[in-house]
Write a protein that binds this DNA or RNA. Structure first.
Lengths: 342, 342
DNA sequence: TTGAAAGCGCTAACAG
DNA sequence: CTGTTAGCGCTTTCAA
């Protein structure tokens, strides 16, 4: 019949009702401030509740309302060294930011590794999800819209059917600013050389919205400055350094922007090995968190606050779950110059 | 009667049962691999389930089992500048580590700010809690044991009634190692000076187990080396620098160990102002994460991995919820020497 | 203003 | 092997 699960302890709503000589529904009304209960009864119920040590069981409430008060933060998961060096710290920030924001609104978060098939497997009931860094036409997004009341993306997303609310760093703004900065630095160093900066991009195999936005902003900048773009892709199982070497064979390349810190480390290593001085011979920039883990001082940083991105994503998701108005957010970035060792 | 909550969509277990011409319990058995169902029926149920797009509602399951699959990470919360500079990053690591570990076991986490009254307010149903850095005889611990099936602490805890499983850094091991290191460094710098190192401790007003353990290990070391201990406490609303100045008035003090990075920054600032050179005149050490945010290169670090502490705490809590055997954990530390600018 | 009854979606005990 | 029955603890019409 009844399973006296260990956690099913303490009195229930009917115990309080019985003790106070009222009905369960009255008790419910009292504990939910849903008005119309005589002051007298309210007091009676509350005091018996207190003396019995009654606390509403949130699971019952959850079943009734259909809401678990838990949101999922869906991140792509791969068990590779590049992944754990590059993305894990980034996801950590997002998750922690989301958790701290969620609690302000009465929500919990579940970190969810997305499965390769574009579905979400979880044993935790979820009210909605934040999909981090979706790819173009992501099956995960379709699946999420099919299964949850609310979907938000961290990173721009749009396809023929869905356009979820999203939080994003504005690469159309950031990339030109960064590249202009690199160019200015170069001119300081080579005042005679008036040519536009030959900058290449080092990207990974996964074309999420962040990568796509970066590439398009980069191409636009190149076009505007009359230089030919060079986007080097590091294959999924390729050692980043071999991709870098490929790039450095072209000795016109004066600067490289890396999409993540692992690539930046590879560029530094390869450059050191080939005797190219940084930043004198070769400028490097990277997107990352300039305030964090083992930063590379010789690289310029396009620094974004991932904790804040997580917090804003959670905020947006909660707002749509609660039926509040919400608008897409842009998260701020800053450009941190390289430290010249000279 | 029925509230067609937005999230109550999709077919339920009885819809599948009806469509397949079986009973609800059979469907339940099929979806929970609880054996004893004819292969034939199983197939039938699964296929009708699939065609109806049935997915088990985890909230129902949760109510039935009395488990929400959510664990709380309880951190003390204060809205002060010291707090957000010192503890917030630390809590972030713990929370993220816990979230990533929890998901491996089918749990979500809720970050919970502990209320001043030693209770836990939350609108999320919790199966158990991790209490981070409890103080001696913490009312929060009593409350937690009263209200949850499982309690784990991050930081040693024991009182007359409760001794929860806990994760802790072993200060009895770490502190002597650190102080020996500082002493060795000093001797390198002052070979003539054979006296034992006069080291002071700079602690905060909140005596959590980490603070208590540090102090007692420190006193033990002092006793063993025949120096008199000096523990300086920075008051709750006091500017850390004034506490430091108090300490530095005693010019026998040759080294200071700080319990957190905010205090370390204060020591550095005060020392610079008083013209005491670091580490030549004054050695500084601090507990923190040597791989992270704006580290102070002139200080030696007692570096602990908070992400791992969070993960282990979650692991322990899950184990006790699942009735698995679990033993207290010690998290590793490392000592990172100061960089001497000379 | 309050109570009775129905039911959220699922699982478990017990028959058959 | 499968169906019946009885809840898990709560909220919410609807009637009194």
């Amino acid at each position: 019949m009844q399973v006296p699960s260990k956690s099913t302890r303490g009195p229930g709503i009917r115990d309080v009702a019985a003790a106070a000589g009222v009905s369960a529904s009255t008790v419910s009304l009292v504990y939910n401030q849903k008005g119309r209960v005589a002051e007298e009864t309210r007091e009676l119920v509350k005091s018996t509740g207190r003396s019995l040590g009654y606390r509403p069981n949130l699971l019952g409430k959850a079943l009734q309302s259909g809401r678990s008060q838990v949101i999922g933060i869906v991140v792509s998961y791969q068990d590779s060294p590049v992944w754990s060096r590059t993305y894990l710290p980034y996801y950590r920030d997002i998750i922690a930011g989301a958790a701290l924001e969620a609690v302000e609104h009465g929500y919990a978060i579940a970190a969810i590794p997305s499965s390769a098939e574009g579905t979400i497997e979880t044993s935790v009931p979820l009210d909605g999800v934040v999909v981090v860094d979706p790819v173009a036409n992501d099956p995960l997004i379709h699946w999420s819209f099919d299964h949850y009341d609310a979907v938000v993306t961290d990173g721009r997303y749009k396809d023929d059917v869905h356009e979820p609310l999203s939080v994003r760093a504005d690469m159309d703004e950031a990339i030109p600013q960064l590249l202009d900065h690199l160019q200015t630095e170069r001119i300081k160093r080579h005042p005679d050389d008036a040519e536009a900066l030959q900058v290449a991009l080092l990207v990974g195999p996964r074309v999420d919205s962040y990568t796509a936005d970066t590439i398009s902003a980069y191409r636009a900048w190149c076009q505007a400055h009359g230089v030919s773009p060079r986007v080097e892709e590091c294959g999924r199982d390729e050692d980043p350094e071999t991709a870098v070497v490929r790039l450095l064979q072209d000795d016109r390349v004066q600067a490289i922007h890396c999409l993540n810190e692992t690539y930046c480390a590879a560029v530094v290593a390869a450059a050191d090995q080939l005797g190219r001085r940084i930043p004198a011979d070769l400028q490097i920039s990277v997107r990352g968190d300039a305030r964090a883990v083992n930063i590379e001082p010789r690289a310029a940083y396009l620094s974004v606050d991932s904790v804040q991105a997580g917090a804003l994503s959670a905020r947006l998701l909660v707002a749509s779950l609660e039926g509040e108005a919400a608008v897409p957010c842009i998260i701020p970035f800053s450009i941190v110059p390289a430290l010249d060792a000279n």
